[in-house]
Design a protein around this nucleic acid. Structure first.
Lengths: 215, 215
DNA sequence: TGACAAAACGAACGATCGTTCTTATATTGA
DNA sequence: TCAATATAAGAACGATCGTTCGTTTTGTCA
């Protein structure tokens, strides 16, 4: 990796952390340059516009999210355990104080929802991918016999996302200590609703129902 | 109402609508003055600082929310009907294209969650009040015998807020036509889980609620 | 090591930011 | 109607915004 790519990564690292606090628009070239002991023009040369920087920040944040949440969760067993691993990783990621790329997307979502342009397009693409990934994890859990087959994967993804957003609101804004417990309670409700009915309904299960209790 | 108070209201009206699109920080004195055909200094004189303007915008938005959502819902019957009226009004308010004070608070929440100061304090106060109001509506429904008494009102408020945030994410950012249906489906799940058990049997733990009916 | 390319700098650009003055115009009450 | 007052305008401030340009430093490789 050349020198240029190295500082470029350092810039994106810093910018991503900053953006989750002050928003994508709040990341100013001057402040960012000062933080990294660079000149404005030197930093600017790496990206040819602020818009390009913003897009790169979104992609960098998504990569970090993949590294820290998605990929680790893939080592969990297919089905419900993996869905749980995704949620727990997501929550852990949101709590992390060091790099707050998690809330970068929450912040960017409300910041860009009414501002058309390539930055918004990139964010929508990433968010759609992530929602679809959750829905996919749900489908795998159905295939594994953990979740009921007549559920709606997209609705599940929608609901889980809502739980995360509510957590963000409670924990970050309202500083509610119970936000984490509340998020887990909501998630547990969603998971038990997604499970196959306990009594053994009309559809005959192909595999024995796994019982997963939470702490 | 004097002349001053009149233009002051007009400024807040415009600023509130603008803030829900570009955020509280994005509402710039110059742009706001141009929109209203006022001079920067003339507008500025009404508030002695931008920070004061932002606080006034939050209060104005909250008043509008009270007028358009909360007070109309109070004419619904106590208990579950009122809870439903609150939710429907909330959703309607979020959809309204004319004045978007609803998403003002969603936008401000992520914008201010990491920026201490009096503006943030005001927002937290308003949001706490609103959450507590929802929890209060839940308690009334318990008192009316509609909802089960062993439920957690704060958890209910938390969950409903999550549904609204997910709707905002789906409808505003992802432009998902099904967001409204999804939000209603999630809300119905919450309400049926909150209802008294039909059989009137043993009270079950909160995590083992009823099966979710996906749309 | 020397030549060439990559990377960072410094200065400046026009524009806009929030804010502060002083001056002019409306509005109001006696 | 006429002062008293409230309201708006105008000009300018220092600061910062994203961006451009030419120069200088630094890294890379034959």
């Amino acid at each position: 990796m050349g020198k240029g790519e190295l500082t470029r990564q350092a810039i994106l690292e810093r910018a991503t952390a900053l953006a989750s606090r002050v928003g994508l628009e709040g990341v100013t070239i001057g402040v960012l340059a000062d933080d990294l002991s660079l000149s404005k023009s030197g930093l600017f040369a790496h990206f040819r516009s602020k818009e390009a920087l913003q897009i790169q920040v979104l992609r960098y944040g998504a990569e970090r999210f993949l590294d820290n949440v998605v990929r680790p969760a893939l080592s969990a067993a297919r089905g419900e355990p993996r869905v749980r691993a995704l949620f727990e990783g997501w929550l852990r990621w949101g709590r992390a104080s060091a790099d707050r790329c998690g809330c970068l997307f929450v912040a960017a979502s409300t910041e860009l929802d009414d501002r058309p342009g390539p930055v918004r397009d990139e964010l929508v693409r990433l968010q759609r991918d992530w929602m679809e990934f959750i829905a996919g994890a749900y489908r795998v859990a159905v295939a594994e016999g953990h979740f009921r087959p007549d559920g709606d994967p997209e609705q599940f993804a929608y609901d889980v996302y809502g739980v995360m957003l509510a957590w963000h609101h409670g924990a970050r804004l309202l500083r509610d200590d119970k936000a984490g417990d509340r998020a887990r309670a909501s998630f547990e409700t969603l998971v038990s609703a997604a499970r196959r009915p306990a009594g053994g309904g009309v559809t005959r299960p192909r595999a024995a129902r796994k019982v997963q209790t939470h702490a």
